[in-house]
Nucleic acid binder design. Structure first.
Lengths: 207, 207
DNA sequence: GTCATCATGTAAGCCGTTACATGATTGC
DNA sequence: GCAATCATGTAACGGCTTACATGATGAC
């Protein structure tokens, strides 16, 4: 359960309804992590999420109109879609449009906030791209977890780049890796200070 | 055939003989790309490489002495090992020490030079860590291939970081990704100029 | 009417993981 | 003698890919 793709798909559906084919491009354009996930991953994932009751297929009145209807009152749009729900969910053109359920929303936020799986950079980037769905404390928790991982990793690669036994090329790779981790760390630290000053200004307003 | 792990293992064996258990730590310390590859990957990989005739098990006279015998005359060491080759390859303590074959050496260099699979960062880092086994032109070819990929990728993430439709967090991720790619590009460019000035100085010496 | 694109799905396979099973060697 | 560690292997499974199979829609 808790896979990267699941989170990504649910994250897209938090914003608005999508059909499978569309999810691929959205994954690239809005979450930017991968270069085109294959349909062989997307369709089975959607089927599984539907079985779990986290998403459901909805009927589409007019597909063209719907897909341009990305903004506007979120709750109003959701209510409208719920009213034209069917068992098949197949629009007149064979497109199967999915909507996230209430349970799906709850599960999504829980998955997103789970700090256990921020280990690799892709996982973390995806979560940050969806960070607006997290409460400030959850965001900070994720950032701090990631920071700790990076500090550990930095020690490892620095040891490598100082290892005299390694040849020029291997050491160069380690050295570059260290620079990459340093860049990541600087980013995290920026985000953390932004997060904290934001919380402070909110606290200030409240006085 | 041509998997990352195969190249990594053959790369380690180019330097000196290893047994499976040892390969895991070497992978971390000398090629630095992963945090501990599992034995469930390493042993089957070695078995496969042996079936393919790219590596072979060698008998160990004294395991302790051998493992500290990492430097010195390479050809001499190789000849000595070849002379105590057995069918089992099991030393008295159950360690199975592998040696790369001539065919293995040839295959390794071919795999390493193959530019088709420099697409992801791990693959490329591994190849650079082993770059001393490549001829200068091969190294340049790999670097240029990687450079082209990165330029393409940079366009994508820059498009994302300039996309007004994305929220603050998603744009931040894209922006950071762009900085990462820029860092990679700068590294590649450094390596390329170093490679070229080196070739020039060699050409100069030849005059 | 036919071609490109949109659209959904299944099957096989790849490459890696964790969990399990087993045993030798060394240090205390 | 007993624990830690070194050492090798198998089995099951996970998540993703490519290749395959199918069909609707829109542009010309």
């Amino acid at each position: 359960m808790d896979t990267v793709l699941d989170i990504a798909i649910l994250g897209l559906l938090m914003d608005r309804d999508h059909h499978g084919y569309e999810i691929r491009t959205q994954l690239r354009d809005r979450l930017g992590v991968w270069a085109n996930v294959s349909f062989g991953s997307i369709y089975p994932a959607l089927a599984r999420l539907e079985r779990l009751g986290l998403v459901e297929a909805v009927a589409v009145a007019d597909a063209r109109t719907l897909s341009s209807l990305s903004t506007g009152s979120l709750s109003g749009e959701r209510a409208a879609l719920r009213s034209r729900r069917t068992s098949s969910g197949l629009g007149r053109r064979g497109r199967k449009v999915y909507s996230i359920t209430e349970r799906g929303r709850a599960e999504f936020v829980a998955m997103l906030a789970n700090p256990a799986t921020v280990d690799d950079s892709k996982n973390f980037s995806l979560r940050m791209a969806l960070a607006r769905y997290l409460t400030p404390p959850r965001r900070v928790a994720l950032l701090e977890r990631r920071r700790a991982d990076l500090v550990e990793r930095l020690d490892e690669v620095r040891a490598g780049s100082n290892n005299e036994l390694l040849d020029e090329y291997a050491r160069g790779v380690m050295d570059h890796a260290a620079k990459g981790v340093e860049l990541d760390l600087a980013w995290i630290d920026n985000l953390l200070t932004a997060e904290r000053s934001n919380q402070q200004s909110l606290a200030h307003e409240a006085t």
